[in-house]
Design a protein around this nucleic acid. Structure first.
Lengths: 245, 245
DNA sequence: ATGAACAATTGATATAGGTCAATTCTAATA
DNA sequence: TATTAGAATTGACCTATATCAATTGTTCAT
């Protein structure tokens, strides 16, 4: 089992504090508000969310199941992926605290979601959320903003997979992780890669051997320093950035 | 200049009729309502949109420009694409009547948009739309639904570019176009490809030579019939579908 | 109808990244 | 501490697709 507390150079306390500042519907309300909302403790509001805890490698939901919930990560990481009929996997994304996943619309999930390490999520049932949105335009707008943001990220990934070579994909990958960490208030340089090489490969549309070779290439060209297989230090962000275009 | 009236086996009249039934905020209001709204002719509503007409290959906006509008196609097609610093192009999508593009949030456009053939769009200024959303929750929800749908499509494309080979990408491409046409009420079988081979290549993350070869492969294996370079007939949808996984 | 300009096809060759296999590293358990 | 299983690296070779180049097809203006 992968434990973030082992590989991340920040204390669990720090992480939790960060969470309180930005979690769930973070840009609107404080985490405590969201939580209270979830537990139905705020008078005037009904309960629209429930919290759930997962251990490593548990499925939150599977592709093609009927979708009825939107999830928000409050702790840990999630990977979302699509499975082809012949067993090939495409990882759509690695998600961080504050990220949403699942489906707002009531159809089918178009990817599966699995926890990486111990993970807490807030679950918003579509019906309840829907009813709540009626009363809270600010929330609706925020949800729209977040979905637009996700869309932008997905479109970026289309660019990566369509046009960048293995070198550039790898560079973009570490840069993106670094930026993502910084965005949620974690230190952005010694960057941890909690996922396996196979996972990275399935994310970047490469094989694990190519990922491994590209990492050593970045190492030998002094762009990164490999602290251990799950933790790397970015030595030359400028050059890495220029590789991503 | 590419003219749809030449390559599509439906009359312009038919197209326009279809447009009236589904355009702009089609799933909520009729096109005429939307148009009236745009022109400020409906009492009780302020004007939130303006119509604009483009000829072939005109830029609607460029990547990294400040974004202030959301666009809806009412006639014609749009391609949206990202440009890498070294000139490589990744086409994010080919859009059809009824599709939205641009940006809801007021930041920068993360792709450029260009007309294919004569194209009409409805322009929704972010500020006006935003104000209007306040008064119209139905619209806000619909916008959220549409954005979620787009996100789903983008995630599908991540799967295509990450895991499918040239054969499978090509098969998926023609199947998708067929389904898209059917979705907006056009005949779904002789399928027209109004874009160039280079455009298809830039969309699928291949080269134009590979696209050309794959088309001839589909032809020789009796999966499609090439009516002319811009129009193909799907002979065996079942096998094409199985190629897409 | 003719020619110019561009789009698409086809062929020959090169190469990035995949595949298969052997080796080394790491972490967990006895 | 030794043992083992899984993860990561490295090497040798192969294949799908890119690249470069020549040919054919199509559209539009004259």
């Amino acid at each position: 089992m992968i434990r973030f507390t082992q590989i991340m150079p920040v204390s669990l306390h720090t992480i939790n504090r960060e969470m309180h500042e930005r979690c769930a519907l973070c840009r609107i309300r404080s985490y405590s508000f969201c939580r209270a909302l979830g537990e139905g403790k705020l008078k005037g509001f009904t309960s629209i969310s429930a919290e759930k805890i997962y251990t490593d490698k548990q499925n939150i939901f599977l592709q093609n199941e009927n979708s009825d919930s939107l999830y928000n990560i409050t702790e840990g990481n999630i990977k979302i992926y699509q499975l082809l009929s012949d067993g090939r996997i495409q990882i759509i994304g690695f998600l961080y605290p504050g990220d949403f996943f699942g489906s707002y619309s009531k159809k089918k999930y178009n990817y599966s979601a699995e926890s990486i390490g111990k993970t807490k999520v807030c679950i918003f049932k579509k019906d309840l959320l829907d009813a709540y949105l009626e009363k809270n335009m600010e929330l609706a707008k925020e949800l729209l903003n977040m979905t637009s943001h996700e869309l932008m990220l997905a479109q970026d990934r289309i660019g990566v997979l369509g046009k960048l070579n293995a070198n550039e994909r790898m560079a973009k990958f570490v840069i993106n992780i670094s930026q993502q960490r910084s965005r949620i208030g974690w230190q952005d340089n010694p960057v941890s890669l909690p996922m396996t090489r196979q996972d990275i490969a399935d994310y970047l549309g490469l094989t694990l051997e190519t990922v491994s070779r590209e990492i050593t290439k970045l190492k030998t060209s002094k762009l990164i320093k490999v602290l251990n297989s799950k933790q790397i230090y970015l030595l030359d962000k400028a050059r890495l950035l220029s590789l991503c275009h």
